[in-house]
Amino acid sequence: MIELRDVAKTFTLHNQGGAVIRVMDGAALSVAPGECVALTGASGAGKSTLMRMIYGNYRAASGSIVVGGVDLAGAAPREIIRLRRETLGYVSQFLRVVPRVPTLDVVAEPCLALGMAREAAGERAAALLSRLNVPEALWGLSPTTFSGGEQQRVNIARGFAHDYPALLLDEPTASLDAVNRGIVLDLIGEAKARGAAIVGIFHDLEARAAVADREVDVTAFTPGQAA
């Protein structure tokens, strides 16, 4: 489902004398449907960078990143947009939404974008928010004013609103209490069970142990540090 081959990444800093920083080389990864792969490595080793490249957020310098048959390294923007709408979900650490939009609508949006009726999308969003213990009193408010933990859960609800065949999870349990962490792990387990291919970053070792089938240390892809 997710297939990376010989992926490299460079940053060219035009405003700092054109310095070229090579941050990744020869990255390879293969995730099958129903499998969860955890990216490991020290801070700054490139876990997030790799994740962002899989999402098409960062541009690969070379190599191929194929998700659901689309090579993000060379795909046209509209193909990536479509892939993100239908196939590839992403739960980031940060919530980025239009201010003043109610939480319920934020969570329902992925379903609406796929053409689901407003009512059905709303019900699905409500079910996820209740399951993640986001108090109903908050659903009509914009999440921009919520606490870190609440924002995180809104983000997760949004990421799980549609049953994406491929999922990227960046620290999904970072600021959650034990109860909510358990719920998120259940959600991840259910996604695996229905056949989703998942790539995740989990600093939370217990969580990682609970859902990850394999670990891939990205340090191996760091230029100069690989053997």
């Binding site: 940053f11 962002r52 098409g56 957020n57 960062y58 541009r59 923007p77 990536i80 947009i81």
Partner: peptide, 10 residues
């Protein structure tokens, strides 16, 4: 030119 988030983030 490119995807909005890609152009802005990378």
């Amino acid at each position: 030119a490119g995807l909005t988030d890609q152009v802005l983030d990378d």
